[in-house]
Amino acid sequence: MPLRWQVDTAARMTEMQTISTESPDDSWEVAGHSFTSRLIVGTGKYKDFAQNAAAVEAAGAEIVTVAVRRVNVSDPNQPVLMDYIDPKKVTYLPNTAGCFTAEDAIRTLRLAREAGGWDLVKLEVLGEAKTLYPNMVETIRACEVLAKEGFKPMVYCTDDPIAAKQLEEAGAVAIMPLGAPIGSGLGIQNQVTIRLIVEGANVPVLVDAGVGTASDAAVAMELGCDGVLMNTAIAEAKDPIRMARAMKLAVQAGREAYLSGRMGRRKYADPSSPLAGLI
């Protein structure tokens, strides 16, 4: 039974006429949309919209998550996100941050679709404020309703391989397990379950939440994930633009390493230099 990385690499090799030092086309698809960048970034916690826009550019992101909130009716001329990050150039992915019930999440995404016209959305239904851990019962319920209404939900979830399959059956177009709690920066806490989800999924898998630094993003990609979604890791870095660049490189590096088929692990040493001819 071939491993998933072998299948992925073989598919790419048959597309290439010659072995090349350039990366072949490694785009990915979600709900019929094709993207080159495997890094999705959020738009929260930045110093200002200008810094946010610069970070999105440095990250090379083609998708950004956005929240849906009440307009400030007492100050309607406040600058808005759309003035800095053009929704015609970058895909806006509305989220349901702050929703603790399926009803709230569904209501929020119906409004988001009305405001933007997009079907591709991010669904998250949280269980409690302290940990922001997903409430999977409500999440699956919301996913079913949204899928029936024609939405294409990319779903934030626990790193539970069975919940991931249930979400796929409920109509999720992407599975987005957390690596660690939102905003924690603790990195991928359970590589085993993330790998199991990747192996069992028929839709793209992206680690969403918990990435803190570049190596975390690379680890996610080395596990076979199709992409990584992050916000705080970039926004709260001391130099967000530089970190955005680091993340772009990390996602690319992790992906290349995955497609290269890493060496096996050994319990002990195996010398790289020959034993014969020692003086």
Partner: peptide, 10 residues
């Protein structure tokens, strides 16, 4: 009435 728009978020 609820009037909403897109703002920054994760």
């Amino acid at each position: 009435l609820e009037i909403v728009h897109f703002v920054g978020g994760g």
